[in-house]
Design a protein around this nucleic acid. Sequence first.
DNA 1: TTGTAAGCGTTATCAC
DNA 2: GTGATAACGCTTACAA
Lengths: 337, 337
Amino acid sequence: MKKVSIKDIANITGVSTATVSRVINNNGRFSEETRLKVEQAIKDTGYQTNFNAKSLRINKSYSVGILVPDITNSFFGNVVKEIEIELFNHDYSTIIASTGRNPEKEYNYIDMLTSKMIDGLIIISGLNYSSKQESVHDIEVPFICIDRELNTSKSITLITSDHYQGGIEAAKAFAETGIKKPLIIVRDTNTTSTMERIEGFRHQLINEAIPFGDEQIFELHSTDTITIRSQIKTVLERNKGTDGIFAANDEMAALILKVAQNMDIKVPEDLQIIGFDNSSISKYTNPSLSTIEQNTEEIAKTAVKYLLNEIDGSSPKERKKLIPVRLIKRGSLKKNN
Amino acid sequence: MKKVSIKDIANITGVSTATVSRVINNNGRFSEETRLKVEQAIKDTGYQTNFNAKSLRINKSYSVGILVPDITNSFFGNVVKEIEIELFNHDYSTIIASTGRNPEKEYNYIDMLTSKMIDGLIIISGLNYSSKQESVHDIEVPFICIDRELNTSKSITLITSDHYQGGIEAAKAFAETGIKKPLIIVRDTNTTSTMERIEGFRHQLINEAIPFGDEQIFELHSTDTITIRSQIKTVLERNKGTDGIFAANDEMAALILKVAQNMDIKVPEDLQIIGFDNSSISKYTNPSLSTIEQNTEEIAKTAVKYLLNEIDGSSPKERKKLIPVRLIKRGSLKKNN
DNA sequence: TTGTAAGCGTTATCAC
DNA sequence: GTGATAACGCTTACAA
C-alpha cells in the first residue's frame, strides 16, 4: 500500500530516476524505447507525481487561492465556480477560503494560503485595510481583486462589472417608462461599486431631466431580514409617490416587492423595481424581478487570465478591467410604449 | 525578497535548524532563552513555514478535498461553506473541485487531488461508477460521502439528511390539511435520497389512509426550464384534482407554483406545495413556499468529524449517519384547523 | 539542551 | 541518451 515513487519506476525499468523524470516531464532527451518502458511501468504501478516534492523543488505549486466573503451569495458563488472551472482547464487547483466578511479570518487565511505556497491569489470583494495596514501589503504572491478595490497605495489589478453602466441602464429603463420619482436603496455607500452605480444612475436621470438628489439614496446595512423589512416600510411611507426603486441586489429587491405588496402598492403599476445579479430569486417572485446581470463567466475568465499572466510574468500588468453588465427586463418593469 | 527559511532563522539566532524546528513545533526540549530568540527572529523576518517541505517530510498536508457537483446549488453551497469553516477551525485548508456532474471531470479531479497529497476527501452527491469501476475504488486517502451513496462494494461512510423522515413530514403536513390527491415530482428516481423520500411519503400517506400509487410519482430530469415548465403543465392537466405536490427542491416547487398560477389554479386553496432545501427562492415567491430544510451545518460538522477521525485513525468507522430535517410551513400550505 | 545528518520525492546540472 | 548527485525546506533519530 506504500505510494510508488519515481525511484520505484526507475528500479522497475532499470533506468535512473533522472531519466524517468525526463520522460514524465517530456523534457530533455531519451530514447523511444525508454519512453515506452517508463510509461508502461507508470501505468502498471499507478504512479502519481508527488506534488509536494515537485513544488518544493521547482518552487511552484500549481494552485491558487480564492478569498471570498461567502460562496452562498449568488454572485460570489457563480464567480467562484467559473474561476474554478477556468483554473482547472489550466491545470491549476483552487483553494477556497470563505472569510465570512471577518477581517481576522481574512488575515489568517492569507497567512495560511501563502505558506501553502499558492502561486497566486484572487480576492473577491475583499475588505478594506485602513486599520490593519499589514494584511494585504505583504502578500508576496501575485494577486488580483474582483469586484472591490482595496484602498491601498499599491497598484492592484481589479476586475469588476461596469457598475456605472449598470446605474445608467437602470435609469434608462426607468426613464423609458416615464418614472418621476425614483429611489436607490443600497447596502453600503462606501464601496466603489455602489458609488459607481449611484453615479451612473444619477448621471442618466439628469440626462433624462428627472431630478435626483442625495435624499433619494437610502443605505440599509442591517443583516437581519425583519429589520430590513421595517426599514423598507418606513422608506416607502415617508416617500409617497415613489414610482421606481433601484435595489442593491435581488434579495433586497424581493424584500421591497414583498413589503410594497403588503402595503397595497402595485408592482409594476405604482412602483417599478430593478434588482442586481440575476439570481434565481429574481425569476420566481411574482411579478418576476427586472435585474442587472453581471457577466460572471467573463469576470472569472478575465481574472484567471490576468492572474496567470502575472504569475508567468509574461505580460504587462493591467490596472483595471470593466466587464459590461446587462439589464434583464421582467415583470417588475412596465412595458414601454 | 527571497523567502526566509528555517535555516535563516538558525543563522540569525545562532542555533541549529533542528532547534528552530523544535521551537516552532513546540516539540522536544529547548531553553526558554532560545525560545524567545527564535520567536523574535520569526517575528522580525516574517518567517512562514513552507508547507510543501513539511508535508513532504511528515507525509501529511493538512488539506482536504471536496468534490461537489455545483456550488451554486443552494444545498451544496451551504454544505461546502460550513465544511470549509469547520475545517479551517481544525487548521485544515479546503480544496474545492466542482465536477459539474461530469464523470470525466470527477475522475480527473480525484487524480489531481490525490496527487496533491490531500489527507482526506469529501464527496458530495457523487456520481455512480457502475461503468467506470476504477474511479472511486482506488482512492487511497480516507474519504466520506455526503448526500448520496456510491454503489460500490466498499463500505463507505455516508452522512445524509433523513430523507425518509422528510417524506413523512411532507405527508403529515398534507394530511393535516385534508389533502386527497397528492403527487410527488422528483428529478431522478435512482438516487437513494429520492427513493427514501418517496418511501417516507408513501408510508405516511398510507398511514393516514390516503391512497398513493406509482402513477402519482413523476420524474422530470430536464435541465431546461422551458421544458420543465411544459412538463409540469402536462402533469397538472392530466391530473385534475391534484391538491398537493411534494417537489424535489425549491426551484422545482417555484416552477410548479408559477405554472399553476398561470393555469388559474390557486395556491394554497386548490393546490398546496412543499419544496425541499429552504433555499432563498422559497422565501420570496408569492405565496412563499413551505419546504423541508436540511441541516447543512450539522451535516458539515458531522462529515468533518468523521473524516478527521478516519484520518487520525483514532476511532472506529461509522457506516451511516442520518441528520434530521425540519418542515418549514409557509404560505403554500393551508393553515390547519 | 542542542547539534549533526539523513531523508522525504523531485528536478537540474554536470559529466560521461 | 543516460546516470550521479546536489538541492529544495523541513523533521527526527541519534549523538554529544
